[in-house]
Design a protein around this nucleic acid. Structure first.
Lengths: 141, 141
DNA sequence: CTGTGTGCAAACTCTTTGCATAAGT
DNA sequence: ACTTATGCAAAGAGTTTGCACACAG
């Protein structure tokens, strides 16, 4: 991968989000957006950054994740569990959730559709629809 | 409402779940199951119990909620946010989620359906499908 | 230069745990 | 009596915050 080219694209992305393209934010954005759709927690991203030789602090990772989320670059995943997971795919798509393991992965988008969605209450509009298909190990018959 | 009759039904429910019908568990189960579908956090249930004159400790509320969940009397809601919400309706149904307020309420069940659900991966089966319709205040045009 | 971002450590919130006491069977 | 549940307080995990220093424009 050409990391110089990636950096520039990512830098623009950060700048377009109204954020100063600092070393840390660019490094984090690169980790987040370089490899397609990802679901990860602050702690996971922090470790990844350290492994990649980017000595960013956990607090900065939290800041960046929230700022990216506010700017629409990320979305927070609606899954149970103590940690917050961020999703790099902000378009409408859905997830499998593995019970017990707290593991999440995308449902290959395409066919899944919801029909007969109810009207939202007065004064509200639908921001998006999340579908979580909860999986459990198949127990032998 | 006839609280004596309610107590007996609730007591059986707790007993059938394999749990000793202690004062606290019965009182909590009554609060939970008396008024139809509810979504609440441990802290909310705790406060409700205290208001109802049942001096139960928060730790016991947590214990009871988890035990009820393991027994299939409750389900954990898949919504973002720091608190865990429990749902007294364990059948397949779906939710509105109000952004910002962390408020959840049922979608009047009936018409909503999902089509073209993907196959679960090998060795896994679908435990259930949660649909969360995220709402935001409608902003004037 | 000026203002925003970062790092650290402490604070905070929600939840779990350990152990003595109380209650259920 | 014997066993399991409860309550309290302390510990733990995840996240947020305050403030001095560093960096981007």
């Amino acid at each position: 991968m050409d990391s110089r080219k990636t950096s520039i694209a990512v830098e623009m992305r950060v700048r377009d989000a109204g954020l100063r393209p600092t070393r840390q934010r660019i490094a984090l954005a690169e980790l987040l957006f370089a490899k397609g759709d990802r679901h990860l927690s602050a702690e996971e991203l922090h470790e990844e950054a350290l492994s990649a030789g980017v000595p960013v602090s956990l607090a900065t990772v939290y800041n960046a994740l929230h700022q990216f989320t506010e700017s629409g670059l990320l979305r927070i995943l609606a899954v149970e569990g103590s940690k917050t997971y961020f999703d790099t795919n902000t378009s409408d798509h859905h997830h499998f959730f593995v019970e017990g393991e707290n593991r999440v992965f995308d449902i290959e988008s395409g066919p899944v559709t919801v029909t007969n969605l109810p009207e939202p209450p007065e004064g509200m509009e639908i921001a998006n629809v999340d579908i979580v298909v909860r999986l459990r190990p198949k127990r032998p018959a």
